[in-house]
Write a protein that binds this DNA or RNA. Structure first.
Lengths: 228, 228
DNA sequence: ACATGCACTATTGTATACAATTATACAGAA
DNA sequence: TTCTGTATAATTGTATACAATAGTGCATGT
């Protein structure tokens, strides 16, 4: 129990060729390796990665659904790209949805999950004090995971996971800052307490702000240079 | 201009085998033809539809990303299903996002799109008075499409389109009721006016309520029998 | 009777072959 | 020159063949 956080949330199927291709291309798009409107050719990418067209094609379909590329039938796949404005939009949207999630979690959370949430806070404090940034990242992920599950809404869970995956690239270097890590913990704690007090309005508001703060922090740390 | 509303929003690629397979399976899941947890086998479905495994597989990948099936590597694809609660959740989530969309549209809408919005309202009144339900459906779709585009957010647009597609099944029989059609028009009009007056708060609130109303209406008309 | 191992089957994963579509270049006519 | 039609090449769409994996049932030994 607990060593493989996030396995449930990862629908990229790490060990299949398709999964690897999917991940690789997504990474390349999010990191700016592929330019806006660049055409992705099945054979070229297949050769580059040493696989046939089949897994590449399947990865393309997934990438299209995630909005990262646009496939024009019988013509080709074109990179959609992701601008700083897109990132901002995503955070704004996510802020709302995390708020909704916190609200629903307040109503639906089970006793067991509530305990896990408290334990999560406790452990986060522990590791933050010692500067264990890797564990902090994992705990942060898990905190949100718990809330997703506690919302008791299959679809909200699904959507928020997508966002989470989406932003994982950006988040990495972001949470690495211990300052933000500590602030984040404090916010988590407040959200947890609001849920415990069954104050849905408060939980929603705090979760909203939590995401906005994460975004502000990222912006301040000069992400403009990271993703262009 | 205007005869093929929604073509942009449809990422199912109507005329490819994959697109048809995708649509067919989604329909079968949403309409309850496939039971919860039922296993979908590539060859079986392929034979049923007279196609090979390839387009079926690609359709599966898309269906998984939409959360309608769950694929376990090397094992199989299983129907996730969609309960009345799921539908409710989706409407709640969509309500928030349509609200956000209306807010952003208020700020970003172009003059040209504003005019199209007004024209849409006008035409809707026209057709509602004459009971042209087909045109009404089309205009309703287009109304929301315009707002999505006007939000000037690629991602919000993308997400809301997905939801829209998702609920299209349910919506069909819903909007068919002329009563609701007329009420819907009224609500559209109010949203449009709020945007025109640059009152973002009002636009957001009205859009929220608009979706909730649509849900309530659907529930009252006994959708429990439709989707189980 | 029960557990264990092995062969066999069914199903998915991947590669390749073939078909259909689209883009391009070039020749010829207006 | 400019437009148009056609042949050709490049690319995606689909089907099929082969590989890998997981599930099933039976035989065998204790």
């Amino acid at each position: 129990m607990g060593s493989e956080y996030g396995s449930k949330s990862d629908n990229t199927d790490k060990y299949s060729l398709r999964g690897r291709v999917f991940k690789k291309i997504r990474e390349d798009i999010l990191s700016g390796h592929y330019k806006e409107s660049e055409e992705l050719k099945e054979v070229a990418i297949g050769e580059e990665l040493g696989v046939s067209r089949t897994p590449v094609r399947e990865a393309f379909r997934q990438l299209e659904l995630e909005g990262l590329i646009k496939i024009i039938p019988n013509k080709g796949a074109y990179v959609t790209g992701i601008t700083p404005k897109d990132v901002k939009d995503i955070y704004m949207i996510r802020s709302m949805l995390e708020g909704l999630c916190a609200r629903w979690a307040t109503v639906n959370i089970s006793k067991k999950k509530m305990e896990e949430l408290e334990e999560n806070i406790y452990l986060s404090d522990f590791h933050a004090a010692r500067g264990h940034s890797e564990q902090l990242t994992e705990l942060d992920n898990r905190f949100h995971e718990i809330l997703y599950e506690a919302s008791d809404s299959k679809f909200l869970e699904h959507i928020l996971r997508d966002f989470h995956q989406y932003l994982v690239q950006v988040r990495m270097k972001n949470l690495a800052s211990l300052e933000r890590g500590r602030a984040s913990n404090k916010e988590h704690k407040m959200i947890m307490e609001a849920i415990k007090e069954k104050d849905a309005d408060k939980a929603e508001r705090l979760a909203n702000e939590h995401i906005i703060n994460a975004y502000q922090n990222m912006k301040n740390n000069g992400f403009e240079e990271t993703i262009e």
